[in-house]
């Protein structure tokens, strides 16, 4: 088990990776990536039972994570490489031609750690249910995790999946919603207000819990451990995790403006001055 300070150090390096990757190609999605850095760091460096050194698509005996909001690929790629799935130098190829690190994650280029393509929103929960059902059929005591954007919940397929999982007692599934309240055109309340996300999942029959401080490492680790303790009890688990888009870089924080734009040279320097280099830049 990693301690919180160690995880925070890793998170700082992951944030450096994110802004450097997006800056290098002047495209990508830094806002959501920075907001979910604690979550993915905690998951891959503490929570998941996984084998990063010998990736196998079937993941037998391993926990599995599916990134449903694929546009936050920078944080996913950084965490995958930093946890040993592939060489960190490959982060240099992000979004460039002939790269395995496509704009949105894909299995198509054989990148270790990715088990489904995502980007077109709303599909990951269904995929995770399928993987969770297979794990049950295979007699495994493992857990399937997902991450979704809150804006992504506007896709209809999410609610087909949300209906299916409790009805069929898919209780080896933990779906986390990144509740940052922002989407491309503005706040989620302005674009298409969803009311209470927690109440909606409760009404569908999920076990729902909240991580109030999704950018506080201890809160995220404790929250995910609590979520794990809720599995195996007949219900799927939904974690509503409150984060701030752009967290960790003051001028990107708390706004939808940095959903999908890249920092300039000066902005990169300003961002990096706020993020300690802990593991060595790629």
């Amino acid at each position: 088990m990693a301690d919180i300070q160690e995880l925070e150090k890793i998170a700082s390096q992951v944030r450096r990776d994110i802004v450097r990757m997006v800056h290098a190609v002047q495209s990508g999605h830094p806002g959501g990536s920075l907001g979910c850095t604690e979550f993915l760091t905690a998951l891959y460096f503490d929570i998941l039972k996984h084998n990063s050194k010998s990736f196998d698509m079937d993941a037998k005996g391993e926990d599995v994570f599916f990134l449903s909001n694929g546009h936050i690929s920078p944080v996913f790629y950084s965490v995958l490489s930093r946890s040993g799935y592939f060489d960190v130098d490959e982060l240099n190829t992000f979004r460039k031609i002939n790269s395995r690190l496509q704009g949105h994650p894909t299995t198509h280029e054989g990148l270790e750690g990715v088990r489904i393509a995502s980007g077109s929103l709303g599909q990951g929960m269904s995929v995770a249910i399928g993987a969770a059902l297979t794990k049950k059929m295979n007699g495994e005591d493992t857990t399937v995790y997902t991450l979704h954007g809150d804006g992504e919940l506007q896709e209809g397929q999410i609610w087909e999946a949300a209906l299916y999982a409790p009805a069929n007692k898919v209780d080896n599934l933990i779906c986390t919603i990144d509740a940052n309240g922002q989407q491309i055109d503005g706040s989620t309340d302005d674009v298409l207000s969803m009311g209470s996300i927690a109440d909606k999942f409760k009404a569908f029959g999920w076990e729902v819990m909240t991580i109030e401080k999704g950018n506080d490492m201890k809160s995220v680790v404790d929250g995910l451990k609590h979520a794990k303790s809720l599995t195996g009890k007949g219900k799927p688990v939904c974690v509503v995790m409150h984060t701030e888009m752009g967290y960790g870089v003051d001028f990107m924080q708390g706004t939808h403006e940095w959903h999908g734009i890249a920092p300039s040279d000066d902005q990169l320097a300003a961002a990096l001055s706020q993020l300690e280099e802990t593991l060595g830049d790629y």
């Binding site: 599916f66 489904i116 269904s126 995929v127 249910i129 399928g130 969770a132 297979t134 397929q157």
Partner: peptide, 12 residues
């Protein structure tokens, strides 16, 4: 949802 579940079931 059926297509997504089917895709996920192949993992394993």
């Amino acid at each position: 949802n059926m297509m997504g579940i089917a895709a996920g079931m192949t993992v394993g």
